[in-house]
């Protein structure tokens, strides 16, 4: 009955997820993150470099883990990313939210949305009516069930990554996993 050592992804990566990279990639990297968490913003910068270096070998997945008591705008930001996703603009909004972490109030978010060539009326309606709150909660609960206890938390091919979130450590960990995967028959 102990939760000690439990460190695997409870909800496998699937079609509901936001994915960046090739679906044929050998490695899947899942992040549970919060747009208002400073450590997640730092991780965002690290990831840009790591994913850049490892090219098509890694599929990156982002799931929401907003802690609203500590980060009052985190849920709204997560719902905004989902509202953008429903118009095919998830990653664009994702980047904007991290880059503007200090201004994630609803008016600022609406302003960011105007730069993304979306149906703004629909975006705002979805945001105000919390159309995507259930989805954000599902992400959050899947994290809780995977033992996520804070942000950011990473899983490499379903196994929790406990190392430092630096370009070096993360790249090494991903390359280490790559080495264990037998190369496909040509």
């Amino acid at each position: 009955m102990s939760n000690q050592g439990k460190s695997s992804l409870a909800l496998p990566v699937g079609s509901r997820d936001h994915m960046l990279g090739s679906k044929d990639a050998l490695i899947t990297l899942v992040e549970y993150g919060d747009y208002e968490c400073p450590h997640c913003k730092a991780a965002h910068e690290v990831l840009k470099r790591v994913l850049g270096e490892l090219g098509g070998k890694v599929l990156f997945v982002f799931r929401h883990f907003p802690i609203s008591t500590v980060h009052p705008n985190a849920k709204t930001a997560a719902e905004a990313a989902e509202a953008a996703a429903s118009q095919g603009r998830f990653w664009e909004m994702h980047n904007i939210l991290f880059e503007n972490q200090d201004s994630l109030d609803i008016d600022s978010i609406k302003r960011y949305a105007t730069t993304l060539n979306m149906n703004l009326q629909r975006f705002e309606k979805e945001l105000l009516e919390h159309v995507h709150s259930q989805r954000v909660r599902e992400d959050f609960m899947s994290g809780v069930r995977s033992g996520v206890n804070g942000t950011p938390t990473f899983f490499i091919n379903g196994t929790r990554y406990w190392g430092a979130i630096t370009v070096d450590s993360l790249t090494k960990a991903l390359e280490g996993v790559l080495k264990t995967i037998p190369t496909r028959k040509e």
Binding site: M1, S2, N3, K6, V144, R145, G147, V148, N149, G150
Partner: peptide, 14 residues
């Protein structure tokens, strides 16, 4: 170490 909540939820379910 922050123990998280999966152990709690699992027990409540059981």
């Amino acid at each position: 170490v922050n123990p998280g909540a999966d152990g709690i939820l699992k027990t409540l379910e059981e």
